[in-house]
């Protein structure tokens, strides 16, 4: 068990290095921690809540968590791909949000409820 964590530390070692061209003492690991935390919160929220809008917001949170990680890595490797990708993700997310909210409204109209358990017509 100990060795497992030790090698995990090796695995994370590069992340603990500081950013090139210095951003103070904040390392990549900090950003990643925030990202993981946000993602986990989003995931837990998605799994536990029943309200469609809350669930939708949770997915948005997971999205942003991924975005943070991407930007962090992008900065870390001094490579623009990650950041440009996040721009794309944001754009798509915006469009998606519009679509998803519209769907939620439609669903609400049908059942007068926002409880996700109301719908299981995809049952096989």
């Amino acid at each position: 068990m100990v060795s497992t964590f030790a090698s995990m530390a090796d695995f994370l070692a590069p992340a603990q290095a500081s950013f090139p061209e210095g951003v103070g003492s904040v390392t990549l690991a900090h950003y990643l921690f925030v990202s993981v935390a946000m993602f986990t919160m989003g995931l837990i929220g998605f799994l536990t809540r029943r309200n469609l809008i809350i669930m939708f917001l949770c997915t948005e949170m997971m999205f942003q968590a991924a975005g943070i990680a991407l930007i962090a890595f992008s900065r870390f490797y001094l490579h623009h791909t990650g950041q440009s990708f996040v721009i794309f993700v944001l754009t798509v997310a915006a469009a998606e949000a519009a679509l998803a909210l519209a769907l939620v409204v439609l669903l609400f109209r049908g059942r007068e409820s926002l409880n996700a358990d109301q719908w299981h017509s995809l049952k096989g």
């Binding site: 029943r50 996700a116 299981h120 096989g124």
Partner: peptide
């Protein structure tokens, strides 16, 4: 088939 419950969660 049963794995597809239709329940979102």
């Amino acid at each position: 088939r049963p794995s597809q419950s239709g329940v979102l969660h």
